[in-house]
Amino acid sequence: MIGLMYKDFKVMIDRFKPANIIAILVVSLFFILLMRGSGATFIAIILPLVVASTPVILQTSDEKSGWDKYVWAAPISKKGIIWSRYLFCLGLIAGTGLFTIIVNILTQIVFQDLPLKLHLIISIVGLLISVLYLLLLLPAVYAYGTSGNTIVSFILIAAVMFFLYAINITNLGDKFIRFVKYLLNIDIKIVCLAIGFMYMVISLFSFQLSLMVYTKKFKR
């Protein structure tokens, strides 16, 4: 499994060359200098989301080289193959999330235009959205290859549009605001536990779906 993660790491390093990483950092810095606290929170949402599309890059590389078929001849279970991809992508998002949290804390210390709590909440929300996107994307990429990204993006945009439409034509908006207020009054530990449990269930479902799709794909 470590071998497969090392391979994914090398593919990502090849894709994101030092020049690309420096360009991303320079643009991020530009945003922060221009928009201060708002720029940092924007980065906290966008950067992990960009990293969440890693499975598409890895799948493209695997399909191009034929590694996705070759790896079946190696002494590693299908579960191990899928698990290594999940671990690698989640690790990468966690690393990016940590980076954006540090950037947000530093931005707050330097500019102090937004409260630290808001910086942290937005960074964590950005991280959670990215992980959710990744958990949806992975099975889609195993099922549809690189088109999986388009499918998931389409479904998510459609879901958001439908939600906004529903808020406009019903009293769902009021209920949603009441629900958010209710959440804010609950003990933070319970909220964290609930979110943790929800993500665990989604992760398990996503993993099983990926495994099922992956096994079915090659067992023809």
């Binding site: 090392y6 391979k7 090398k10 002494p75």
Partner: peptide
């Protein structure tokens, strides 16, 4: 197989680091 299925961005040292964990 007939083709080489290792990712084209890797070199033979990288292959060693990967395969030693698999076998």
């Amino acid at each position: 197989f007939e083709s080489c299925y290792f990712p084209s961005c890797m070199n033979s040292v990288d292959i060693e680091k990967m395969m030693c964990k698999l076998y």
